[in-house]
């Protein structure tokens, strides 16, 4: 997981590697002197700052998927709503999808701006106990494109973790962009000393999606990120007219169920397709409040319960170890 500066030569060994500044590839690199001095091998001071900031955050949950458009943001938003429905809990939702921030719209916060205070950036509040932070709040128009390369995105994520005035939190949910790239490496790296409870992995039933998700699972294993479980989203569609179920995204290879069995991971649940979910997201409302007795809402609630159980077990384990 070495860091390669954007102006480094192609075979850069990475600034934190043993060979930094000494390898043959380092000849002529503008960073050679700095690397050779050993300064770059020290961990980023921000990691310790973030760890300190995160001391007041009890649980940190990442929502991941190798594939785009499977429902990460929808899930993150509804997980946040569901956790915050217990008014004694403080919940925050951080959107690190720098290029495609959907959270402001899904949470009904489009057009909101972030305010600067003495203790950092103030997040935007949906409810008294539900805070949201997204790059969407920093853009001046909905047409604004964030055309940033990796290092700049990482800087933003660092700021989100270090400089936002989160306050005391029971849950911090982090919604990520698809893939296994800069944003993911950064969030894991920056939270490395702050102990992440684990990741919830979202997939749809088709193999085309599962093959990307298997990569994400490898990624978690590579960076030693615990996996809370897998959610199969868009799992079948019940026609509102004739009540027959159609597999719009058919699980030709056994879906998430078989993948979980093969990889020894818990399947947290299956959420069916429901046009009302998309509509609630577009309107910035919680689907769980809009149609609480729908099968999709029930599936959501049982998944949220499993995640809560995982987190409280996580605490007891930590206490018994420590």
């Amino acid at each position: 997981m070495s860091d390669v500066p954007s102006n480094a030569p192609e075979h850069c060994p990475g600034t934190s590697s043993e060979k930094a500044g000494k390898g043959s590839a380092c000849q002529g690199c503008p960073n050679q002197k700095l690397c050779a001095s050993g300064a770059t091998k020290a961990p980023d001071p921000a990691i310790a700052e973030i760890a300190e900031k995160m001391l007041t955050v009890k649980h940190k949950i990442l929502v991941l998927s190798g594939k785009g458009g499977v429902g990460k943001s929808t899930f993150s938003a509804h997980l946040a709503h569901a956790l915050a429905s217990d008014t004694t809990k403080e919940v925050a939702l951080l959107d690190v999808d720098i290029c495609g921030p959907s959270i402001p719209r899904i949470m009904g916060l489009e057009g909101e701006q972030v305010h600067q205070s003495g203790s950092g950036w103030s997040p935007v509040y949906v409810e008294e106990n539900l805070a949201v932070m997204s790059i969407g709040f920093l853009l001046s128009s909905p047409d604004d494109a964030v055309i940033w390369r990796g290092p700049k995105k990482n800087g933003m994520i660092k700021q989100f973790l270090r400089d936002v005035d989160w306050g005391d939190l029971d849950y911090l949910i982090v919604d990520t962009p698809p893939g296994t790239s800069d944003e993911h490496l950064s969030i894991v790296q920056y939270l490395s000393s702050a102990s992440i409870d684990g990741a919830v992995i979202i997939t749809t039933p088709q193999e085309v999606s599962l093959q990307d998700v298997r990569k994400e699972i490898r990624f978690c294993q590579k960076v030693k990120l615990p996996i809370i479980g897998v959610v199969e989203n868009m799992s079948g569609f019940v026609c509102p007219n004739c009540k027959n179920t159609s597999q719009i995204f058919p699980p030709t290879t056994g879906g998430a169920e078989r993948m979980c069995k093969e990889l020894g991971l818990p399947l947290l649940g299956k959420v069916p397709l429901d046009p009302r979910i998309g509509r609630s997201c577009d309107e910035g409302k919680s689907f769980l409040n809009e149609v609480p007795d729908s099968p999709a809402a029930q599936a959501y609630n049982s998944i949220v319960q499993s995640i809560q159980d995982f987190c409280s077990n996580h605490i007891t384990e930590e206490q018994s170890v420590g």
């Binding site: 954007s6 296994t180 790239s181 490496l185 990569k215």
Partner: peptide, 15 residues
């Protein structure tokens, strides 16, 4: 390996 994650940052992808 088809399950291998390409965990690369920007500069390597650009190359």
């Amino acid at each position: 390996n088809p399950d291998d994650a390409v965990v690369w940052r920007g500069p390597k992808k650009n190359a």
